[in-house]
Each structure stands twice: as structure tokens, then as C-alpha cells.
Write a protein that binds this DNA or RNA. Structure first.
Lengths: 174, 174
DNA sequence: TAACTCATGTAAAAAGTTACATGATTGG
DNA sequence: CCAATCATGTAACTTTTTACATGAGTTA
């Protein structure tokens, strides 16, 4: 149930509408927790009903702005301080690598080269963001900066790995 | 729909029962595509019904061994050679980092230190596996080795990042 | 013979995706 | 005034998780 906590976390920073939150999921949070529009609106309704967030204002075009409540802040805090740390993740791109041996060597290395290229491109994108954002000392922004740096280092590692893996496949596959 | 392809990929190597496959999901595949027992058995039934796999033998304790069919191999191949490359992933552990600024500096750094430690432990585990497995030249094993190396490099990068992030939080959070 | 591992199945709930549906406001 | 963006909602479907349920063979 991480989506609800992601929403609570975003609202802890400042009040926002479903639409505002959707935009954040499409940009900064896309990297660590993708979410669809339908899911966001649905979850907001539940959080509101449960008293973890509340409507703090309305605007044009039926806009509803939500703010986090004390109960919401407590729930967020509890989640953040939970002892367990789940390092698990799912990657369809890596899963495919597992079965690359069923293809020809050329097809296999082509896939890994594509993998490398995509990561190199993402690296460039993330570095551009890092270098163009105006970094104030805002606490929430600092957390975002840490994640961005994770993405940069991760992309670099993934690209280097993919180039190394291409070589291995070339050498070791018949 | 990656689970079905993961199953097809495993069966492309050699026939196996649902239980055998479950064990592989708990070990090697856990890193890139976790799956529950109920999901595996359900998907196997569907694949069998769809003619992508077939029963190739039975054993004690109601054991049923499945093998991949030509249709299954074709489906696997199609999936592996699809043009799109989905780099997206979900990480609850990273999502939490986004909201660390809502905690005290001590709580925040404690989380990142835990993050570092868990990754260091995983690194040690994976390196131990790499150093103790007997590496034959088997193509399927080589693919597994590439994934293992990805895990090793990724854990190392994550650990280093977490230590760096701890420093940043100490410096920049009030 | 008791505990453990092997072995499969299914039901219910939760989470996530895709698609459809609608309408207001704003900027060029 | 037209296109783009803002803004929300929901229905249907797929995927994943959790839990319950059962029983056969193996090992100490």
C-alpha cells in the first residue's frame, strides 16, 4: 500500500489537487513509483473518506485541493519508520536478459546494446535536470535531489554493466 | 504480462514442475521478478490450456512436469525481440527516501544507514554465490551470471549512494 | 511416528492498468 | 473560436498478494 503513502508524503509538503499530484507522479515520482490517473483519484477519495486528508479549497474547473490532516501525518510517519526495508523490485528489462541465451548471439548483444543506450540517454536526461534545477535549501527538494542522484548513479552503473554484458555474451555464447 | 514469459523462459531451459519453478522464483528470479506460488500455478494452467506448454511427465505426490511447446517457444521469442524497452521499476525503499525530510535528521540518516547496510549485506550474499557456483559454459547459466553481476554492481552502487546520501542529509537538513 | 519437504489448488481481496466519459477554462 | 490544458470520475479488466486447504512421500 505504498501509493497512499506517496500521496500523503506529497501532501505533507503542500496542499495539492489530484491533477497536481498526477503531474508529480509523471515527473519526479515516475522513477520510483509510477501511478495512473485513475488510481490517484481513487486513492484520494479513500484517503479523504478515511480522514487522512481533507479538502482545503476549491478552484476553477471543479478543482479540489487536498491537505494532509494530523491523522494523515501520523500514518505517514508510521510508514516511514517501519522497521522492514523492502529492497525488492521488478524489472521486465532485466528479466529478458535471463532468457537472452535462447536468441542468437547477435540478437542477444543487440538487446544489451539497446539496454546500454537507453540508460545512457536517461543518464543525460537526469544530469540535465540536476544541472538546470535551481536548488534552494528546501528540505523536500533535498530529498528529491537525493533520489535524482540515485537515478544518475543507477543509470551509469546499468550502462556500464550492459556494455560489459555485451562483451561477455560475445565471448561466451556459441 | 511478464510472468507468463518468465515461466516460458524457464521451461525453455528444461522441463519442470510448478514446484521446481517456484523454487527458481524464490532464488535467482526473486531479484528481478518476484512471484507467489498461487500465481505460478494459475499461470501454468493457463499456459497449458493455451498450448504454450504441455505436460511431459508425472511423478510422486501428484507432481506434473511441464515442457515448452513450439508455440510457447515462438511466443517467448516474440516477447524477447519486442522493440520497446521498459526501464521502469518500483521501489518502496526509494519512495520512502522522498519523504525522509518529514522526519528528524537523526531518523532520516538512520534510515539511509539501514539502506546502506542492507545493500552491503546483499552484496556479500551475491558475491558469495558468484564465487561458489561452479560455472560451466552453459548458455542459460551465463545469462544468470550476467544478472548476478548486475545485482552485485547495483548493490555496490546503492550502498555507496546511501552513504553519500547520509552525509548530504546530515549537512543540509536542519 | 512426528516433523519436514514436496506438491498442487483455489478463493478473496488488493493493487494496478486501460479505456471511456465529460466538461470547464485558457491562450493564441 | 479552436486547440490545448486543466480537472475529475468510473467501469472493466488484469495482475499480484494473502490466506486457506489438502495430501503424499521422506527423514530423523
Amino acid at each position: 500500500m505504498s501509493l497512499r503513502h506517496a500521496l500523503l508524503g506529497l501532501l505533507a509538503e503542500k496542499p495539492a489537487s489530484g491533477y497536481d499530484l498526477l503531474k508529480r507522479f509523471e515527473t519526479s515520482l515516475a522513477m520510483v513509483w509510477p501511478a495512473q490517473q485513475s488510481q490517484i483519484y481513487g486513492e484520494l477519495a479513500k484517503l479523504n473518506e478515511g480522514g487522512l486528508i481533507e479538502i482545503t479549497g476549491t478552484g476553477a474547473r471543479n478543482r479540489r485541493e487536498y491537505g494532509i490532516t494530523d491523522a494523515g501525518r501520523a500514518e505517514l510517519r508510521e510508514w516511514l519508520t517501519e522497521p522492514g526495508l523492502d529492497l525488492a523490485f521488478r524489472s521486465a528489462a532485466l528479466l529478458r536478459v535471463f532468457f537472452l541465451w535462447t536468441l542468437t548471439r547477435e540478437e542477444g548483444t543487440a538487446y544489451l546494446e539497446r539496454f546500454a543506450r537507453e540508460n545512457r540517454e536517461r543518464l543525460a536526461t537526469l544530469e540535465a535536470i540536476r544541472d538546470n534545477v535551481e536548488w534552494t535549501g528546501d528540505p523536500a527538494q533535498i530529498a528529491g535531489w537525493l533520489i535524482l542522484e540515485y537515478g544518475i548513479r543507477g543509470s551509469r552503473t546499468a550502462e556500464e554493466w550492459a556494455r560489459w554484458a555485451t562483451e561477455q555474451l560475445t565471448e561466451h555464447l556459441p
